Amino acid sequence: MKTWYSICALDEGAEISIYDEIGAYGVSAKAFLADLGKLPDAAPLTLRLNSPGGSVFDAVAIYNTLKRHAGNVTVTIDGIAASAASYIAMAGDEIIMPENAFLMIHDPSGLVMGTAADMRSMAEALDKVGASLIKGYAAKSGKAEDEIAKLMAAETWFDASEAIDMGLADTLAAPVKMAARFDMSGFRNTPEAIVATMKAKADPVTVEPEPAPKPAVGSKAGPEPDPATIRTEAMAYAKTVVDLCRLAGQPQMAAGFLEAETSLEDVRKALIDARAAADPDISATHPQPGPAPQAKPWGDVIARTFKRKG
């Protein structure tokens, strides 16, 4: 299964890379923490970040584990540490930012579907997580929690110099070429420099592949697939699968679907069947208004929420 992180052993310690959306592809922080737990307690760690964020709950778990690690933790932001990724960065004993890197903090957000009680429960959870984030940023920067809270509410982006001045980073490094492109449309105040880079047709750090051999006489060769397009489609597929599973109340099924590369149509069918099996049929003894259970209303919800294109 594809994952959003890698951990490589070094002669002394290990290097961890988070170069994607945290919690993507159905891989949670549980797997990350299990791999991290295999390292010696006192091993020095180098964490390289280039991430638009992701699951804030996973990020808090990763931050807490890195803070408990006995060895020195050095964080280098290789481009972007936004949202949940910026909180993970705060676990570093030293945070290094190249001149053209960015760090962003904002209030946590979440998605819930259900009753008013469900939504109040989510709001309470986000308030608790937000308070935890504020304490983490304040502890690193030395700034007052009220000041941090205002910056988070405004979705504040810092370049390297600003982050260092704010106390959210320690060391300025030479500029780097951004190593990945992300969909930044979900953020309000993304700097134009990042938007332009993300929209660039060519990946600045991708080495041009050698020309493919010419096809044999009489054979047909289609156009070479665009790596950026493949990546975008893969990310969209993974996000849709995870969202569908969460919506259906079956988040544990996402990993299996992604590993098997199950079509979205089959994902929908499997989730509808799983939901139907999980919901007891009480209509015989307690008639319910509306359509019969065979109508499988969750199927309607999923279909309306994630309409197929084309």
Rank of each mutant, 00 (worst) to 15 (best):
A196D: 12
M198K: 08
S28W: 08
A284N: 14
A116G: 08
A144P: 13
A295K: 10
L133V: 01
D281F: 13
E162G: 14
V60N: 09
L39A: 12
D78H: 00
L45N: 12
A144S: 15
M152I: 01
E94C: 11
T171P: 12
V129G: 10
L264R: 09
D203V: 08
A34V: 07
I95S: 02
N64W: 00
P297K: 00
F187G: 01
A84P: 03
V241D: 06
A160Q: 14
D279S: 12
E145D: 08
K135G: 03
N50D: 15
L33T: 01
V205E: 15
E145L: 04
G130Y: 01
V27C: 07
A29N: 06
G13C: 03
T190D: 04
V176K: 05
E259L: 09
I95L: 05
P297E: 00
A193L: 13
A42L: 11
A277H: 10
S121P: 01
M184A: 10
Y5W: 13
A24N: 10
T74Q: 10
A236S: 13
T305K: 04
I230Y: 09
R120D: 14
K296N: 06
I22M: 06
P209T: 05
K239R: 13
A202G: 08
P204Q: 09
E210S: 11
E261V: 10
T3M: 02
A91N: 00
D266G: 12
Y19N: 15
R188S: 10
D279K: 13
V75Y: 04
D279Q: 14
K199W: 03
L247R: 03
T171A: 10
G167M: 01
M113N: 12
K177S: 12
L247W: 04
K296C: 04
A200T: 11
T190S: 04
I96S: 11
I80L: 07
Y87L: 06
A254I: 01
K177L: 13
G71T: 08
F187R: 03
V73P: 03
P98G: 05
T305C: 05
A91Y: 03
A278C: 13
A42Q: 14
K38M: 15
I18D: 10
K150Y: 00
Y25P: 06
Y25M: 06
I134Q: 02
A180H: 07
V176M: 05
R308L: 12
F57C: 10
L36F: 05
I16M: 11
P108W: 02
V27N: 07
D243H: 00
D127L: 06
T305Y: 00
I96W: 13
H106C: 06
Y5P: 11
A81Y: 00
N50H: 15
T46L: 15
A154R: 08
D11H: 02
A82S: 11
I88V: 04
A248F: 02
F32Y: 09
L271K: 10
Q252E: 15
F182M: 07
P225H: 04
G114W: 04
M253K: 07
D165W: 04
A81C: 01
G290H: 13
A277E: 14
G142K: 02
K307N: 00
G92I: 02
A117V: 09
A101L: 11
V241C: 05
P209W: 07
S283Q: 11
M97E: 06
F257C: 00
P98T: 12
A228Q: 10
L10P: 07
S109E: 14
T76W: 05
A277C: 08
A24D: 06
P40C: 11
T197A: 12
T240E: 01
P215L: 04
G23C: 12
D300T: 12
